[in-house]
């Protein structure tokens, strides 16, 4: 069968080729190059470029929340949890988005994490925040965002190949970058996310948080409370549900994962001295200004 296909292609080429001009052949060559380029793995510097563009666009969607102490605190949790991830070599760094009515977070392939103030205000203790950050870290450490970039680049390669034949222009890196960065931005910030990857991020996020010393129940507690608030109609902060899988199913899956993979032990709260001199849970202390 393969031989027949090959012979058919050769026969077709032998008929078409003599009637082609040199320019035609160059155009087809460029198109094939662009098509093949879509299947070449994304290079390190390309991934850096894409991540930078996507990050700048996410940051451009919101105002930045300026609280140096909170920023440092959230970053230190991300660094601690990230140290126990599959990719401890990544530089995990967090930026705070001023969106008090939105519980949401975004991650890029190289470890930039954006969290909304609505999410931080909804957190009740540090293990919950560690669970949420673990989930975001897992998206980077398990290569979910890198795969999204690679998929979009494949599509961009094919689109350019079609465009080349029609318009006879050479592929430009800037065009590819724009196309891929925009499509990946849509995939991670606007479109519903891949359920299998979300589930994996939940499980691995709990592994990382647990390995860092936090209770894996932090993520379950956080999601359960959000679900209850949503169901009781008491919270308008449901943006995360637009892009994430069904919250009921997610809570069930996370609960099952804890039962299967972890010893169900509660975490001791991490207490610090509050402004009044009384002990206060550390996440509550740093997020007090948001509540």
């Amino acid at each position: 069968m393969k031989r027949i296909v090959l012979l058919a292609i050769l026969a077709l080429v032998s008929i078409v080729l003599p009637s082609c001009t040199e320019a035609d052949i160059q155009t087809v060559g460029s198109a094939l190059g662009a098509f093949a380029g879509g299947f070449v793995p994304v290079s390190y510097s390309e991934m850096q470029d894409m991540s930078l563009c996507i990050s700048a666009k996410i940051a451009g969607m919101y105002d930045i929340y300026n609280d140096p102490a909170l920023l440092k605190y959230v970053n230190m949790i991300a660094m601690t949890v990230g140290h126990y991830s599959d990719r401890p070599d990544f530089s995990y760094r967090v930026q705070l988005l001023n969106a008090p009515n939105e519980v949401n977070a975004f991650t890029t392939a190289d470890g930039r994490i954006f969290v909304t103030t609505g999410l931080l205000a909804a957190v009740q203790d540090e293990s919950e925040l560690a669970g949420v950050l673990g989930h975001e870290i897992a998206h980077a450490a398990r290569g979910h965002v890198a795969k999204a970039v690679a998929n979009e680049r494949k599509k961009a390669g094919m689109v350019k190949a079609g465009g080349l034949v029609a318009q006879q222009y050479a592929p430009q890196y800037a065009q590819i970058l724009t196309s891929v960065a925009d499509a990946t931005f849509d995939a991670i910030a606007l479109r519903p996310r891949d359920r299998a990857q979300e589930s994996e991020a939940d499980t691995y996020g709990m592994y990382y948080a647990e390995a860092a010393g936090y209770s894996p129940k932090g993520l379950l507690n956080f999601l359960s409370r959000l679900r209850n608030e949503e169901q009781s109609g008491g919270s308008a902060m449901t943006k995360i549900f637009d892009t994430h899988p069904d919250i009921n199913q997610r809570v069930t899956d996370v609960g099952n994962s804890i039962a299967q993979n972890f010893h169900p032990r509660e975490n001791s709260p991490i207490m610090v001295q509050g402004a009044t001199g009384k002990p206060i849970e550390r996440a509550q202390y740093f997020t007090a200004s948001l509540k």
């Binding site: 990050s55 700048a56 760094r93 930026q95 800037a174 970058l177």
Partner: peptide, 24 residues
């Protein structure tokens, strides 16, 4: 040039990204 072009052509906040990149 490609990244600079993208940042110029879109509604972005590059300063916020620079800030977060300096945190580590």
């Amino acid at each position: 040039a490609a990244v600079a072009g993208y940042l110029n052509a879109n509604k972005v906040n590059y300063l916020a990204v620079q800030q977060m990149d300096s945190i580590p």
